[in-house]
Amino acid sequence: MGARELRTLVEGGSFFEGPRWHEGRWFVSDFYTGTVRTVDPATGAQEVVMEVPGQPSGLGWMPDGSMLVVSMNDHTLLRRSPSGEVTVHADVTEYCGGHLNDLIVDGQGRAYVGNFGFDLMEMADPAPTTLVRVDPDGTARPEGQDLWFPNAMMIDGDTLIVAETFGGGFSAFTIAADGSLTDQRVWGQIAPRVAPGSVAEMLPNLGYAPDGATLDAEGHIWAADGIGGPTCRIAPGGEIVDEIELPEDLAVFACQLGGEDGHTLLLCAAPDFLEVNRRDAREAVLLTTTVEVPAA
């Protein structure tokens, strides 16, 4: 555990998030340059494919090949057609507390999107929130309840799994035929839930704060720890069964399985997550390592 070789694929980002493997390339959002980029898995060569002034985050694809991109600050989903035309797919402001964040798109083209629930960068008091389901026609509806900073999402058959960064674990839902989320339950509790309070009171006691995450073929989850701990492989129920340590000057905030054989784990790393430190710095990196179990 923790002894894998880490390779640097890209340097000089502001804050990488939302990594995806799609059509033989990595896609990644870079918060403070306002760009969505592709990355060649062999050379690290980058291409800007979309500019998002409102700060890009989660990425996903609809059945027609359109890319959906979260615009965090204005709470919108942008849709980039295969020809490159960009339109507003949905404005979900009425359902957001704080920044819009990560998303996942299912095989029907329905997007499930999380939001912070509160203004993290201004250190407002944390508050629970919901997911937002955006149907292919752009109609938005809230789903779930009492989620503490819903973050990365994964779909495993008819189950949607969501990381709760301020909840210390993962919740799960059953996806109904119409796309609604039912049977909200605990998928895995990694650290005990802490009592609600201020950010200063909650953060030091979280124990583990699951951030960006990815599902493997054995139904386990690789998850970044938003408070700087190792990236961990987590079994259903919440047991940590493997972990990857990073150098002391870096923390991982998102990860994704991909590569041609699915065995490459891409890690989005930076010294910290604070906007005041990251906006003008170019210290974020993309790292890769090889894992035994491939992507789901």
Rank of each mutant, 00 (worst) to 15 (best):
P236D: 09
P236V: 07
P236R: 11
G237L: 14
G238H: 11
E239I: 12
E239H: 12
E239D: 13
E239N: 15
I240A: 13
I240R: 13
I240D: 15
V241H: 15
V241D: 10
D242H: 15
D242L: 11
D242G: 15
D242I: 15
E243P: 08
E243M: 14
E243L: 09
I244Q: 07
I244D: 07
E245S: 08
E245F: 13
E245T: 10
E245N: 09
L246N: 04
L246H: 06
L246I: 05
P247I: 09
E248G: 14
E248F: 11
E248P: 12
D249C: 14
D249H: 08
L250S: 05
L250K: 10
L250F: 04
L250I: 06
A251Q: 09
A251G: 10
V252K: 12
V252C: 10
V252D: 07
V252S: 10
A254C: 05
C255W: 00
C255Q: 01
C255K: 00
C255I: 00
C255T: 00
Q256T: 00
Q256E: 06
L257N: 02
L257Y: 01
G258W: 04
G259A: 02
G259K: 00
G259L: 00
G259F: 00
G259Y: 00
D261G: 03
D261N: 05
D261E: 08
G262M: 04
H263I: 06
H263G: 05
H263M: 06
H263Q: 07
H263D: 03
T264Y: 00
L265C: 05
L265N: 04
L265H: 02
L265E: 03
L265M: 04
L266K: 00
L266D: 00
L267R: 05
L267I: 01
L267V: 01
L267Y: 00
C268R: 01
C268V: 02
A269H: 01
A269Q: 02
A269D: 03
A269V: 04
A270F: 06
A270G: 06
P271W: 12
D272T: 07
D272P: 04
D272V: 15
F273A: 08
F273Q: 11
F273Y: 14
F273I: 14
L274W: 07
L274K: 12
L274G: 13
L274P: 03
L274V: 10
L274S: 08
E275V: 09
E275C: 14
E275S: 13
E275K: 13
V276C: 13
N277L: 12
N277R: 14
R278A: 09
R278E: 09
R278Y: 04
R279G: 08
R279Y: 09
A281I: 15
A281W: 13
A281T: 12
A281R: 10
R282N: 09
E283D: 09
A284E: 02
V285T: 04
V285L: 06
V285Y: 05
V285E: 05
V285W: 04
L287A: 11
T289L: 03
T289D: 01
T289C: 03
